[in-house]
Design a protein around this nucleic acid. Structure first.
Lengths: 154, 154
DNA sequence: TTCAATTGGTGGCATATACCACTTTCTGGA
DNA sequence: TCCAGAAAGTGGTATATGCCACCAATTGAA
């Protein structure tokens, strides 16, 4: 299975992960295209959907993404009327997010497409293989890379 | 095994891959930071290094990335004097890429940092685990998602 | 009660990536 | 030879993400 076209770089865990991410991302994006949503947007809508009007910080934490990045990613979805934000009743600093009715419809539409992508992928690699891969990725995502506060050497 | 903090979304292969990518990417980026390079840039320099003055298309193919995306990603590296491009002798359409002397120095510097990141990661998950993960990711990257060009059947 | 520290988000800036419309070269016929 | 098509890149536009500097509420003392 080792393609001679991918020498060396294959050793870098980060590069390998990114490369696979590009490939898989394009696949999911292609399948989701009819809905007008990208894979990331679908994931974000879904996370909001199951989050129960989550605060932005909660979403960012769940997706392991920078809070400001989340803010940026959210903009097109707000602009297109799929989600809306509102201040938390008890803490004005907190901004909560929820799907609009339109957003719920869109999510449902996209979910069918997502399902197709998911099934097609799992049919190719095998459900168990996919489950194991996800488990491994979740494991990586759960790691605690505490930096030793710089190493002014070198 | 289901962490209460990551409900549902964990089922999407794409979302899981992205999430792990964000986490791992930040880790590698942090470790590489002293060199001024991002993880992706390091990977790109390395690919160019081992590619033998590769054409842009060859790099894009090896990294499974869009050709135009590669062009954009290359710009900061050219601007900072780490890589340079030149026309192919036999085919004027082809643009080849190589590291500048400065780029070689930078790559070497970054390689030490990368090595540290790589080792730290593998110490956390285990070398074998990492190797298996990379193999699985390479497998995904090698898949052929041929879209059936819509489904106007019936 | 008052103020320093903390917490939650925003905006600006830079890189990462993709797709699409072009432009320039090549290539393969007729 | 000449032209239709293919092949390789470029530029524009849009989303994805991260970091940093800020601003606005909250909180926890003193």
């Amino acid at each position: 299975m080792s393609q001679p076209a991918l020498p060396g770089l294959t050793l870098c865990n980060n590069a390998t992960l990114r490369r696979a991410g590009r490939k898989l991302g394009r696949f999911y994006d292609d399948v989701l295209a009819p809905s007008g949503l990208k894979g990331t947007q679908y994931g974000l809508l879904y996370q909001i959907h199951i989050g129960g009007e989550p605060a932005m910080g909660a979403i960012a934490e769940a997706l392991i993404m920078d809070l400001s990045a989340l803010g940026h990613t959210l903009k097109p979805l707000i602009r297109d009327g799929f989600v809306e934000t509102f201040a938390d009743k008890d803490d004005r600093r907190v901004k909560r997010v929820r799907l609009t009715p339109q957003g719920r419809v869109k999510l449902e539409e996209a979910m069918k497409l997502w399902s197709a992508a998911q099934q097609r992928f799992e049919a190719m690699v095998g459900q168990e293989y996919a489950a194991n891969l996800r488990a491994a990725l979740d494991h990586v995502a759960a790691l605690d890379f505490e930096m030793p506060a710089a190493t002014p050497s070198t």
